[in-house]
Design a protein around this nucleic acid. Structure first.
Lengths: 213, 213
DNA sequence: CGGTGTGAATGCTTTCACAGCC
DNA sequence: GGCTGTGAAAGCATTCACACCG
């Protein structure tokens, strides 16, 4: 069970997302191959890495497979599941510029296990003018609010210039993971997980992928 | 040279991004290890996969290493370089909701090889009301504008409900890569590259990474 | 049959360790 | 002395192939 490798994990996360969007009742590894591009054998191996006995003969039961994957990866399948299992990942948005406010108004985490419960910005004006369904604080309050509210994840949408400093502050506040929308590569203690999702990084990856065939 | 693996490519893209943000003149593989968390041996192997002779004895020359990586991966280091080498990646934004407009006002690709030259939305009102430094079109014009303008990449910021359909349309217009901000997993012909950067996907990855240690 | 689950074989990547160089 | 570059070894992951099951 502790044998879930990086590659397998990424695939399972993606498979889980596909399953949650499928309306079929059952699905086979060959269908998943068509959907994902990975070989069916590799998908079966991935699934065998988690404890799941269901898939006998005519494919997997979508719902129970999804449950099994989510359980194995420690993620919740939706809001209900997250309540049932007592998993709730509290997040905050750091940086309330154009992008940050777009995300906070978008209710992006509707019906997921994640919920945004605070926003921060260095500019006090902004935290006072903007409004959201959760409180907004000046950045100076981070070190107080984050531990107090047990916030685990941060979505970093500050300008590049402040990215490094803010990330380090988040780290020292005990944040566990950062979704990084800036194009600055963060260097943080390795127990803090970072997921880079800046458009520039994404484009570079895309572009390199294509140009190498 | 065609031996650049997926893993190596991703690391090199990240290293390139770090190099472009370093103001030091030289850097060693051990320093890169500290910054990235990957072992120095693996970094040296990665670099040896591209044609680069520079790094003798006391580390690598930041600027020439960056050049070499960019050249090997087919990406441009900045706007100037992209002009010099005649590389210019034209992009469009599909979906001008909150997120889409945040991205288009943000001049996110300032001083990169990428430039956004068109925006699309299914809602004609929106394309008429909004304004940007590039033209906005109703989605019906996609199949005309994309080939005509030789647009290679799309940033997909439509609502989840329309993601699948829009992605398929983009594919049929001959787009080469999609940066996917929706949480729908796209299944497209494998010659079309997709980079998933939705907050939900990112959080799931983060969360799985942490819970598996 | 059409499908899963899984040892065995193959093919990659990463790590090790050290020669060679400044 | 410190660092790169690289064969050789070790460790993983993917693919193959087939027994087994409904």
């Amino acid at each position: 069970m502790r044998k879930i490798s990086e590659a397998t994990r990424r695939r399972l996360v993606e498979i889980a997302q596909i399953l949650s969007q499928t309306e079929e009742k059952r699905i086979t590894s060959v269908q998943l191959e068509a959907l994902t591009g990975w070989t069916s054998a590799s998908i079966r191996k991935d699934i065998s890495a988690i404890e799941y006995s269901g898939g006998v003969s005519n494919g997997y039961d979508v719902s129970s497979l999804l449950d099994a994957i989510c359980k194995a990866l420690g993620i919740a399948r939706d809001e209900q599941d997250s309540k049932d299992r007592g998993i709730s990942h509290k997040c905050c948005i750091v940086g309330l510029g154009k992008l940050g406010t777009a995300l906070l108004e978008n209710s992006i985490f509707y019906d997921t296990a994640y919920s945004i419960i605070a926003g921060f910005d260095a500019n006090v004006n902004r935290t006072e003018i903007l409004s959201a369904s959760f409180p907004l604080y000046p950045a100076s309050k981070m070190s107080q609010v984050i531990p107090e509210q047990k916030i685990e994840y941060a979505i970093l949408t500050v300008p590049n210039e402040s990215a490094k400093a803010m990330a380090e502050r988040l780290a020292s506040c005990g944040i566990k993971g950062i979704v990084n929308y800036t194009s600055v590569m963060l260097s943080l203690p390795k127990e803090i997980a970072v997921e880079n999702v800046s458009p520039v990084t994404a484009m570079n990856n895309l572009s390199a992928k294509i140009s190498l065939g």
